[in-house]
Amino acid sequence: MKIALISDIHANREAFSAVLDHAQAQGVSDYALLGDFVGYGGDPAWVVDRVRELVDKGAVAVLGNHDQGAVQGVAPTMNEEARAAVAWTHDQLNDEQLAFLAQLPLSVTQQDRLYVHANAYAPGGWAYIQGRMEAMQSLQATSCRYTFCGHMHEPMLYHLSGTGKAGEFTPAPGTAIPLLPNRQWLVIPGSCGQPRDGNPAACYAIFDSASGELNFQRVPYDFETAAQRILKAGLPERLAHRLSQGQ
């Protein structure tokens, strides 16, 4: 079973569409959507509706902090641009769309896989996994062999051996990585709708649960149209300009 791991879509219709088309071409059968479906981007209603359709067909979806903000109100910890986007997003969503976001769980466990937006040790606190220390804290908080999370907008892979030895590396896209069964793994697929590693191409990953192989992907998309949607919405200009820079 091939599972597409998609996170941080951030209301970017063009990126999400490109990733879904790419995943289908790769033979993906299942989807895990790791939160932050809205915020920053200019097409939140379309993205939420598409996520709902996938969930209705069996996809996993978890709550992100921007999704929570759109429902409950702007968090004081968000920067000014994020606050403006979240407030605008709330007004673009109808009651059904807001209710869908509101009922999303913070995490989902399936067999030996944990899906969560931020981390396993305090999912609702929204702390970032910024390095090995936070990754180990997250891995030690769950008995699952695989943890898949978003929140960080750059792809990364961490592992923890049975003897407590930790490791990390930045993956190369398009290269199959065997996730060895004698380790725990924490996978951050990167951001679909707003990558921040200097590459504007959309990020996602594919996990093959049968073979245990993981493959990070980069998908070019029409970021100019996505940027125009942001500008047309009257959102902060930097949210549009950063798409072409992958920042």
Results as ranks from 00 to 15, higher is better:
35 G>V: 13
68 Q>E: 15
56 D>G: 15
30 D>R: 15
66 H>K: 11
70 A>N: 06
32 A>R: 09
53 E>A: 15
31 Y>K: 01
85 A>N: 02
41 G>E: 07
86 V>Y: 07
49 D>K: 14
78 M>P: 00
79 N>K: 08
34 L>F: 13
45 A>W: 02
48 V>D: 10
83 R>D: 04
58 G>V: 04
68 Q>I: 03
75 A>Q: 11
56 D>Y: 14
55 V>H: 04
35 G>F: 11
42 G>K: 01
83 R>E: 12
43 D>T: 13
33 L>W: 14
36 D>A: 08
45 A>S: 15
82 A>C: 13
65 N>C: 11
45 A>Y: 02
40 Y>G: 01
84 A>E: 14
43 D>R: 14
47 V>W: 00
60 V>D: 08
82 A>Y: 14
45 A>L: 09
80 E>C: 07
52 R>L: 13
53 E>S: 13
46 W>P: 00
46 W>Y: 07
80 E>T: 15
38 V>G: 03
78 M>W: 09
49 D>A: 12
54 L>T: 06
77 T>M: 08
28 V>W: 11
70 A>V: 04
49 D>L: 09
64 G>P: 05
27 G>V: 03
49 D>F: 03
86 V>D: 06
79 N>T: 09
62 V>K: 03
62 V>L: 04
86 V>S: 09
41 G>A: 12
35 G>Y: 11
77 T>G: 03
67 D>H: 09
39 G>Y: 02
79 N>P: 12
74 V>N: 07
82 A>D: 13
36 D>Q: 11
77 T>A: 11
83 R>A: 15
46 W>E: 00
65 N>K: 10
71 V>D: 04
41 G>C: 10
75 A>W: 03
57 K>I: 00
52 R>F: 12
79 N>M: 05
39 G>E: 02
58 G>N: 07
31 Y>Q: 01
41 G>H: 10
55 V>R: 12
27 G>S: 03
71 V>G: 09
61 A>N: 03
84 A>I: 15
36 D>S: 08
34 L>Y: 12
27 G>Y: 05
31 Y>E: 02
78 M>E: 00
74 V>D: 06
35 G>K: 13
39 G>V: 04
40 Y>E: 02
80 E>H: 14
34 L>S: 13
57 K>A: 10
32 A>F: 10
42 G>Y: 02
27 G>I: 01
45 A>D: 05
48 V>N: 05
78 M>Q: 01
28 V>M: 11
72 Q>F: 09
74 V>W: 08
58 G>Q: 07
57 K>C: 02
46 W>V: 00
76 P>E: 01
48 V>R: 06
28 V>K: 07
39 G>T: 05
69 G>W: 07
86 V>P: 09
85 A>L: 03
34 L>P: 11
86 V>L: 10
63 L>C: 05
